[in-house]
Structure formats: C-alpha cells, structure tokens
Amino acid sequence: MKKIITALCLSACFSPIAFASSPDFPHIEVSGKGEVFVVPDMAQFSVDVVENKATAEKAKQAADKAVTGFLARLEVQGVKRENINSGNIRLTPEYRYPKGKKPELVGYKAIRNITVTVLDLNKLNGYLDKALGDGINRINHIELKTSKEKEYIEAARLEAIKDANDKATSLAKGFGTAIKGVWKISYHNNYSQPVLMKSMRMDMASDASESYQDTQMVISDSVSVVYRLKD
C-alpha cells in the first residue's frame, strides 16, 4: 500500500500549496517557514508641498520655491541628490459651489511629492525637523527599512528550508519510516515587512524620535517540499 503523509505548517499564514501532480511512490508534503527579526537602520519618508494660488502659474512657482528650499536644507545636512525624488507637479483647479449657481473658479492648487531615503537612521529626526517648513506642513509617511535586506532574506530562506527538513524528518520517524530524498520543491515569494510610522503634522515632529528607537521589522520566507519516503 502506498504511504502518504501530509503535514500542515500551522505557523504559516497560508494553506499548503496543492501540487499539480502526486508522485506514485511513498511521499510526504511539508511546508516550512522562516522568520528573521531585524532592527531597522535606514528609513524613507515622503512629504507633500501644497500651494494654493489665484493662477496656475503662481501656484507652480510657489510649490517650486518650497521644494527648492527643502532640497537646500537637506543638502546642508549632507543628503545626496540621488537619495531624493522630487516627483512631478500636479496642478488642479479649485472651485466654489454657490447654492443654485454655476461653479466659480477660485484658484489653483499645486502639489509636489518628495521622497527622501535616509541611510543613517540616527539622522532621521533631524531631517524631519528640516522637512517641516515653508510650504510643507505634513509628512505623509515614514517607512523604516534595513540596508541588509538581501542578507536577511537569505537567512529567512535557510530557516524555512531547515523548518521543512525538521518537520519531514520528525513526521517520517513518527510513522516508522525515513526520508529518502526530495522529489519536488515549490518556492514562495519572500516577504519583507517594513515598519510604517504614522503621518505627522509640524507640531508632532519633535516627538517622532522616540517612536522608532527599538522598533523591529520581520523578514520571512517559505517553501513547500515533497519528500520521498523509504519504501
């Protein structure tokens, strides 16, 4: 009689993948998962420059001026231009809607988004203080990351492989048999979970530094394996 053992990885956040075809020899299907907890060492934050003026030209000029001033403040602090993405400008008309009357054009809104990559997390709060100035009164988001993501993904992958091997060996032994080899491997995409901080207003920036000092992010990986059992 053919022996088939199926193991469910209870710690995983998904059900084991159904394999397209089942081998005609004794086998066991196992899912393994690996996780690495990492302290972030870099960050990325985004701000919007918003200007409302009577004409589209004046709105654009005001937004460009605010962006130029912000970039100059960052440059003084040592931020390289390649770590700044100033984005494209968006110009939209602004209307007033009097009751019972046609909409009235009252001006134009210019919006420019700027994303800054911070390679030294210790400098993040200083950059945030400099970000909030003329034309910039809100930081959209702060995303904490790690500069060694590839290294940690590899570590999580090795943990997932070890987890699958340990489960398969233990289950096979419990049913009075042993692993003979690997028949099929299905690899799942790795998952890096950045830490997203809340957006903040100008009066909140000074309190931001305490919120990310001991934060951890999770990098995980998973794999499904069909092992051949001894006959």
Rank of each mutant, 00 (worst) to 15 (best):
I5C: 01
L8H: 14
L8Y: 15
L8P: 04
L10Q: 03
I17M: 12
A18H: 13
F19V: 00
P26Q: 01
K33W: 10
F37N: 08
Q44F: 12
F45D: 01
S46V: 08
E51Y: 11
T55I: 01
A59K: 03
A62G: 04
A63V: 06
A66M: 03
A72P: 12
A72H: 06
R73I: 00
R73H: 02
V79C: 05
G87F: 05
N88I: 11
T92H: 03
E94F: 13
E94K: 10
E94M: 10
R96W: 09
P98R: 02
G100F: 01
K101H: 11
K102Y: 14
P103A: 07
L105R: 08
V106Q: 00
G107W: 05
G107R: 02
G107F: 07
Y108M: 04
K109G: 03
A110E: 03
I114V: 00
V116D: 01
L119R: 11
L121T: 01
N122P: 15
K123N: 08
N125R: 13
L128R: 07
D129N: 15
D129W: 15
A131K: 06
D134L: 09
R138Q: 14
N140Y: 02
E143H: 14
E143W: 05
L144Q: 03
K145D: 12
K145T: 02
K148Q: 13
K150W: 13
E154L: 14
E154M: 11
A155C: 06
A155D: 07
K167H: 09
T169I: 06
K173F: 15
K173Q: 06
G174N: 09
G176A: 01
K184F: 07
S186R: 13
H188W: 12
H188A: 05
Y191V: 15
Q193P: 06
S199N: 08
S199K: 01
M200T: 02
S206F: 12
Q213R: 15
M217I: 01
V226A: 01
V226I: 10
Y227G: 07
Y227Q: 00
